[in-house]
Every structure is written in C-alpha cells, then in structure tokens.
Design a protein around this nucleic acid. Sequence first.
DNA 1: GAGTTTGTCAAGCGTTTGGTTGATTAGCTC
DNA 2: GAGCTAATCAACCAAACGCTTGACAAACTC
Lengths: 201, 201
Amino acid sequence: MPGPRRSPKPQERQRDPERTRQKILDAAAAEFAQHGYAGARIRAIAERAGVNQQLLSYYFDGKQGLFRAMTEQWGQRQAEISEPGTSLSEQLRRYTLENLNNPDGVRILAWSGLQYDGEDPGGEARTAMLARGVEQIAEQIGRDNPDIDPACLLIMLMAASMAPTTMPQVIAGLCRADPRDPEFVDHYAEQVALIARKLEE
Amino acid sequence: MPGPRRSPKPQERQRDPERTRQKILDAAAAEFAQHGYAGARIRAIAERAGVNQQLLSYYFDGKQGLFRAMTEQWGQRQAEISEPGTSLSEQLRRYTLENLNNPDGVRILAWSGLQYDGEDPGGEARTAMLARGVEQIAEQIGRDNPDIDPACLLIMLMAASMAPTTMPQVIAGLCRADPRDPEFVDHYAEQVALIARKLEE
DNA sequence: GAGTTTGTCAAGCGTTTGGTTGATTAGCTC
DNA sequence: GAGCTAATCAACCAAACGCTTGACAAACTC
C-alpha cells in the first residue's frame, strides 16, 4: 500500500545526469585501476556503471576523455587526504596504510606514470599536496641534513610507500608474504615510518 | 667481384633460428616496455624485429607466451648486474644510475607488477639477486638497527631507486626537471645513495 | 642430387574493439 | 496536458586485433 508521493524524492528520479556522470567516473576508476588504460574495456565500464555504453561518449570525449576526467577527479580527491599536525613519520605511516588499503589510487597513479607523455591531469592538485610534504621534510629533516634534497626524499618515501601495491611480485618473492595481508600491511607501514624516524634524529 | 665463398660464415646465413628468436625477444622487450602488455601490438613487435608476424606464434605460444619468455629472460639478465665488493650506498648509487639510464627493465618490472596475478616468470633469479642485497643490508645496517626489517628496507630502496622511471609525472611536477635529464639522474642517484649512507651510520 | 625437415612468408579469418546512429522517453516549461 | 529538451537505450559499423592457414624455400640428410 504505497502512499501517494507528493514530491518525488531526489533518489527516486529515473534520470539524474549528475549521478549518472559520477557512476560512470567511479566505474571508470575501478576498471582503469584494475586493467590500466589499454587493458580497460569501455563496455566493462558501462556494465560496472549499469548504464548504456553510449553514455560514456555522451558525457565524456571517448575513452581518452573519460580517462582524463577520471584521473583529474582522483588527483583532486587524493590531495585532500593530507592530515597535518602530526610528526612526519606518523604522517607517513598513515599515508602508507591508506595507500595499501585502498590500492586503486596508487594503481591509477602508477599506470599513468608508465604512459606519461607530457600531460598530467590532476597533477597540480597532487603537486600542491606534495609541496606541503616537501616543506615539512625541509623543516624536520633538512635542518640537520643540508645535503639532503627534500623533494627527492619525498619522492623516495612516496615510492617506497606504494611499493607493495606497485611491485607485489617482488614482495611475494622476497618476503614470502601476501602484499595485501593486513598483518603485512601494518608491518610495512611501520617500517616506512621507522626509516623516516631514523632520518629525523 | 665477390670471391667464391668456400665456407659460408655463420653471420651470412639467411636462416638462423637462434638469432631470429633473440631478435623477436628483443623487439618484444622494447614494445612491451613502452606500451605494457595490453598496449603492445603483435604486429609492431614483428615489424621491430623485421620478421613475419607468424614467427611469433611459431617460436612462442602467442602473445602471452612471448611476454612470459621475454620477462623470464629479462629477469635472468638483470640478476647479473650485481657488483659486490663495494659499500651498500655506492652499490645503490650504481644500481640507480643503471636503472635510470636503461629504463626498459624497470618499466617491464613495473608493468608486470601492476598485472601480477600470482605467477612471476623470472622471479626466482631476481629474488636470488635481491636476497644477496638483503644479506648485505642485514650486515651493514641491521647490526646497529635491529628494529629494521632488511627485506622491507631493500624493497623501499629499490622502489625509491626506480621512482623517476615509474612516476615521471610526479618528478616533473615537483622537481620541475626532466626525469631523464642526465644531470637530474646523477643528482637523484646521489640522493638515494645519501639516504643509505645516513642509515649506515 | 633427391628427399625430408624446418624456418619464413603473404594473405586471410573470426572476434573484439571504440565509436556512432536513430529511436524512445522522462522531465521540464508554459 | 501539449510541446520541447535532454537523458537514455538498442543496434549497428568500420577498423584493429590476435591468430591461423597454406604455400614455399633454405638447409640438412643420405
């Protein structure tokens, strides 16, 4: 006995362009993260999103345009997960945990890097976030170690932090551990933070 | 006036299976390194090798088989570039230089990692090489830092060493430098070695 | 030198791919 | 409620893809 709906609730709408757009972007992120640009299939993205394939062309400019839009949104989203206030090593531990528990962002960044050809959608937002990290390193480590280039160190730590996601086969071979096992993830994050702590001294 | 060739020199042979096989493997390495597995084109590999496309199926088991064979050979090849005897930091500096000046191996490893699904051709050879690095870290760093996991540290340093190749867009955005510029490469390798030296103390 | 094996090639086959066309209908305006 | 706009769909298309077929010629065997 459904009562008469006076004003249709927003989520009951059958057509909602903004929601559809976002569903496509989310599905694209999942598919591209899993298979990379060349390996991703737009049919699969449409299926994941639960929409007709043509909508991908309707809202975005083909596969390339969708990849760009998705990458840009992810870049801006990731730029918000900075949590200042704590020490560098603690911040790095959380950053590593976040990365390893939500590998999609790391994988999108890694795929993008391997096919980098000069343009980097969403790069400004990410660079801005990383620039804050560089400052922090310059303050907490650079003072006593003037020979260290803070930007290089940040990149090293960043790459180190993402290693279990980007090189799982190396982890599996060398550590004989599943790179996604929560126990290993905790251990690894602790180790990354430990190295930073050694450098803080 | 070409003289009569009594015994045809080996390099004059029109058909040389072993050489053809290797030409295909080299071309495959270049193509896969540049575009990844899904992005690589069989026709392009055949063109690069200067042979008919069908030979790729004749010598290897399709695209997958070729990728496996190529990856395996590269793994074994890379396992030979270890140069013991020097200090860890110096060894790391050379390893970084080698990696950044010959990005193909790094890129193949990176593509492979992102599509890792449990099997890792050529992984044993690489693991064996890395295991020696772990021992070296355990000796030179682990003595005074029992809380450091040598295997994790090696993976971090390895990932850090390859970062300019795997994440060139981040370098470009943060360092405002071309990741392949020889001057930057030298600087970065020096920085990687520097971190290792700080930990050796 | 005849005969067999094997390395190489040109052409094509079936499938999948990214993209498009034209129709359909929900939701808005008045 | 008529009319219009914009969101959505089913079906299709040309091109590119990985792979195979069948012919043939270099190299080996005796």
